[in-house]
Design a protein around this nucleic acid. Sequence first.
RNA 1: GCUCGUAUGGCGGAAUUGGUAGACGCGAUAGACUCAAAAUCUAUUUCUUGAAAGAGAGUUUCGGUUCAAGUCCGAAUACGAGCACCA
Length: 796
Amino acid sequence: MYNFTKIEKKWQKRWEENKTFSVNEDLNKKKFYALVEFPYPSGHGLHVGHVKAYTGLEVLSRKRRMEGYNVLFPIGFDAFGLPTENYAIKNKLHPRMVAENNIAMFLSQIKRIGYSFDYERLFSTTDESYYKWTQWIFLKLYEKGLAFRSKTLVNYCPSCKVVLSNEDSQNGKCDICHNQVIQKEKEVWYLRITEYAEKLLEGLNDLECSSSIKLQQENWIGKSVGAFVDFKVENDKLKVYTTRPDTLFGVTFMVIAPEHDIIEKYKDKISNIEEIYKYKDITKKKTEFERINLTKEKTGIKIEGISAINPINNKEIPIYVADYVMMGYGTGAIMAVPAHDTRDYEFAKKFNIEIIKVIESETDEIFDGDGKHINSDFINDLNNEEAINKMIDYLEKNKIGEKGIQYKIKDWAFNRQRYWGEPIPIVHCDSCGHVPVPYEDLPIKLPEVENYEPGKNGESPLASISSFVNCKCPKCGKDAKRETDTMPQWAGSSWYYLRYTDPRNDKELASKDKLNYWLPVDCYNGGMEHVTRHLIYSRFWHRFLYDNGLVPYKEPYLKRTNQGLILGPDGEKMSKSKGNVVDPMDIVEGFGADTLRLFILFLGEYGMDSVWNDESIKGISRFLDKIYNMKDKIINSEEYTKSLENKINKTIKKVTFDIEDAKYNTAISELMILSNEYSKLDNITSKDYITLIKLLNPFAPHLTEEVNEMLGYKEIAYSNWPEYDESKMIDDTYEMIIQINGKIRGKETISTNTSKEEMERIAKENVNVKKYLEDSIIQKVIVIQNKIVNIVIKYK
RNA sequence: GCUCGUAUGGCGGAAUUGGUAGACGCGAUAGACUCAAAAUCUAUUUCUUGAAAGAGAGUUUCGGUUCAAGUCCGAAUACGAGCACCA
C-alpha cells in the first residue's frame, strides 16, 4: 500500500502554508458559494455523517475551482448550546473551555481529511465579534416589533430547565435530553415568525430542492384557507374558524377549548361552573403531548346555562368544553359538524348529540369527502368548492363571517434560561419598560463567572450575577435590570452564511459589496433533520433582513441538497447506546483520508440512507493503490492512447455531469472502469494518466497531487478541469438488439447510423431470428435507429 | 390516522429517463505466483436447464397501458421519514 499518511500530511501542510483555498472577491471570475451546515462541536469528534455531508460539496468545490470559478467554501462552528453547557457542568469545567477544546479537535480532524475549506474565514458563533451581530439582528427584530414578550403557556423542559420552542419539543419530548416537556405559564421572548408565514411559503418557489424538503416545510407552515364565522352567545359573538363553511347547516353543537375566556366571562350564568373548572384543572395537568395522544376517547362537558345561535339558521345549539379543541390554533372555538368531521362525530356519538347530514353520501358514518349538498338551503346541490365560495359570499354580505387564513406555525419561543448562549440585549426599566440596548453598546458580553448552573424556578444563572444584572436604563439613566435569558441554539446558525462573506468586519454584519458578490448561496447541503427548524428559521431571518434592505436577495439559498444518513453496520441508526458508531478517524488511520472520502461517497446514492460496510473499503483502497502503482508504466506523450480516446472523452463527460448531479457513486465507478482499461495496457501516456488523475483529484486530492508532482506537472489545485470532445465520442459501430415479440433473440454489430430499412434487413437475416420467422407471420416491425429492432410475429 | 419516500443477485448498489436488467465494488469459486500464507494477477459468478448454441424464469405482490415496463398507471404488502384531535 502506498504511504498515505506521509503523502496526506505533506499536502495538508502545503495547502495550509500556501492558503491554497482561501478566496477573495474577484469580479472577473464567476463566483460559486458552496455551504455545508457548520458543525456543533461535540466532545465525540467528527462523525461519519459529518464526513458524508462535507465530502459531497468538497468534491463539487474542488471541481468548480478547476473550472475557473471563484469558490467560497467556508467552515465554522455553532458552539453555543446546551450539550456543551451540560457537559461543562458535569465535569466542572467552563463551557468556553469545553467549546474551545472541542473546536480544536474538530478542526484538526477536518484538516486531517483534507477538506479545501477557506480556513481564513473560520469563526465560531461564540466569538464576541460574531454574536455582537446576532444581538444586533435581534435589536432590529425588536425595533420592527417582531421580537416581543408574552405570558403564555410555554413548553418547558424540567430536566434542562429551559423553555423550548415548538420546533424543539416535537412529540412532547425535549429535543436535547428527550425528557417529557411540560406546559408552564411564563413570560418569555418570542419572535413573530407567524407574520412571515406567507412569505416563507412563497419563497419556497425560488428554492431548488427535493419535493420532500418543500413538502415538509409547507406542512410545517401549515396554511389552510377557510372562514371565520360569528356565532351568537348571549350578547357576544363567539368566533370560530372553519375550513368547511359549506357545512354550516350541519352544525349541531359548539366546542370551546378549556382555556377559552368566555367561561370566565359568563361564569355567573353557567350553572355547572364548578364542574367546568374541575375539567379545566385536569386538562392543565395533562401535557400537550397527552392531550394530542388521547385520541381514542373524547372527553368534555356540556356548558349549562348558556347556548349559542347558529347565524345561518338561528338554531340554538349547545356549547361544550373539550380538550380536543386547542387554544393555540384558530380561535380556540369550533363549530361541530358531526356528520362530516371525524372528531366531531366521535364526540357526538359519545354525548348523544344530533347528527345532521348536509352532503350526500352512501355511508351513514362520517363522510368528509366531496359531494352534493343537501339540507342546506341556498347551497343545496352544489359540490364542496362551489358551496364554500357561495357560503363565504353570503357570510360576508350579511356580516356574520369572513374568509380567513390560518397557519399551523407558531411564534418562535426565543429564549433559554441558561448561561451558554447569546445574552438578549434588552434592559428592563421600572419607568421605561423594555428598553433595547443601544447599538453602540453591543456586544453585551457573557460575564466570566464561576457558577453557571441553572437557577431555581426556571431563572437563568445570569440572574444571580449582580454585576451583569444591575445596570442603568439607556433611556432615563435610572437603575435598571438586564434581561438574563439567553438566545436559543438556533440564533447563531440563522445568519452564519452571511458572515462568511465578510467574517472580520467590525462595522456591519457584512459589507454590501461582499454580500452582493457572494450571495445567494449556490448550493447548501445538510441533513433532513434541519428542514423544519434551521432552514425555516434562517429563511425567516434572511427575509426579514431583506425586507429591511440589509441583504440583496429575498432567499438565502438557491439550492438545497440533503445527504442521507449513514446507518451502522447493523442497519440501525448509529448511536452510542447501540454501540454501532463508526469513527471516521479510524479509517483515516488505517486506509488514509483519500480512501475514507471515496468510500463514503461510493456507499450509495448520496441523498439516500446507506449502511456502513467495512468490507468494501478494501475495494477503494485497492483502486487507489492501482492508480498509484500505474505511475511506473507512464510514457511521455501529450496524446491520448488512440484506442482509449473514445472512452476517455466519455469518462470526462460522465464524471463532469455526475459530480454536478451529486451522483458521486457512479462518478467513482466510472473512474474505476477507466483505470481498469489502463491496467490492461503495458504503457499509459502521460496525457491519459493525468486526465484520470485530474478527474479523481476532487475525490482523492492528496494521492493525485502526489503522483502529479512526481511527473513534474503544476499543482492540480491550480490547473484546469479536463475537457471532453464530443466528436471523439462517436462510436463507429454498435450492437443492435433484435427482439421477437419483445424478447431478445439476437444481436448484430453494425455501423452507427445504419438506415432503418437496412437494420430491419440485417435483423431478419440473423440465424437465430430466422428460426422464429419460419413458421410465423410478421405483423409489425418496430425499428429504433441505433438501438433496437422488434419484430412482432404471430405463429401460424 | 394523514402526507411523503423506498423495495433490483449472497451483499453495497448501476441502468442512457420506456428500448440488452444486474455497470462498478465487496464476497465466493477455480487457476497462476509462493516452501507456505498474505498481497497481486487471470477466469467464472441472477436462478433453472444444457457439453455448447440455446431455452425457460426473473427487478416485493396482484392487475393495467404499450411492439417493448425495474422505469408509466391502479391496488396491496413491508420498511423508513415527517406531521399529528390544526377545526
